[in-house]
């Protein structure tokens, strides 16, 4: 992709120099008696593509949902781009953030869901333009131009006027990716984006994501069971078990020479 791609930045990412973009600080999340995240510390550098792997129930998806403020941490803090996500500083003390503050920080984060979650009441084009127009205040024609460019990027330039129910799962997921990118987020969260797809549709979606990963400096945080895809796009892989990161490193290292016994077990089970 060249410089005039739909993803070229009018709002520059604050440093692709590897400065810290996401920081979890002793985050605890419990569901009832079940502790899903146990004093979790980890950070993601700006511009990096990080993949979370691990057995189901190890807390990977919880991390994405915390970042999306769909759920709240029980303890600890989360920072995005230097600002607290779930807290506000008032008179030098940290207090739970108000709705407005949360929304402001969250604008920097986009998410693609396992089940696509397109709005069935809107045609494809409006699915993509609605948030840029109502949330970011973009003029309508500008938002539409941006949406058309993104649809071209994901190979669906001819589907502007279709309703989501008229598309295949793979097409819907590619629209969902375009919808998330239209907000020009600094971080893109990908929550098992291919698990709900028929096998023959997986490749198309992964190709689009690979393209985005290789040609942009958007930060990606990705939960996936597609180990080849993880190896392909990741700068760093985090292995989760029982709410903690038990091993992390570049994909070559994790996939070919893991140190931890649990990692080895997990990889031999899924590969």
């Amino acid at each position: 992709m060249s410089a005039d791609t739909p993803l070229s930045k009018e709002r520059p990412n604050p440093a692709v120099d590897g400065s810290e973009l996401i920081r979890f600080d002793r985050v605890v999340k419990r569901f009832g008696a079940n502790t899903v995240l146990d004093e979790l510390d980890f950070s993601v550098a700006s511009g990096k593509h990080v993949t979370l792997i691990g057995p189901s129930g190890s807390g990977k998806t919880t991390i994405l949902r915390l970042l999306m403020t769909l759920i709240k941490p029980d303890e600890g803090t989360i920072k995005v781009g230097g600002a607290y996500l779930t807290h506000e500083e008032k008179n030098g003390r940290l207090v739970p953030a108000g709705e407005k503050h949360v929304r402001e920080v969250r604008k920097n984060i986009g998410m693609v869901f396992q089940q696509f979650n397109l709005f069935p009441n809107m045609k494809v084009l409006r699915n993509i333009t609605e948030a840029p127009v109502t949330v970011l205040g973009l003029p309508k024609d500008e938002a539409e131009q941006r949406a058309r460019d993104l649809l071209d990027l994901v190979g669906l330039g001819d589907k502007c006027d279709a309703y989501p129910t008229q598309l295949s799962g793979g097409q819907q997921q590619r629209v969902a990716i375009a919808r998330a990118l239209a907000m020009r987020p600094q971080v893109l969260l990908l929550d098992e984006v291919t698990s709900a797809l028929d096998p023959e549709l997986v490749a198309g979606v992964l190709d689009v994501l690979r393209d985005i990963a290789h040609t942009t400096d958007i930060t990606m945080l990705c939960v996936t069971h597609e180990m080849n895809f993880a190896r392909d796009i990741s700068d760093q892989v985090l292995m989760f078990d029982a709410g903690r990161v038990i091993e992390s490193g570049p994909p070559e290292k994790i996939f070919s020479d893991p140190e931890h016994e649990r990692t080895r077990e997990f990889l031999s089970a899924v590969l």
Binding site: M68, T69, R103, R106, K107, M111, F113, E130, A131, T134
Partner: peptide
């Protein structure tokens, strides 16, 4: 949730 993710 999709609405939250888009900051509505």
């Amino acid at each position: 949730e999709a609405g939250v993710a888009l900051s509505f």
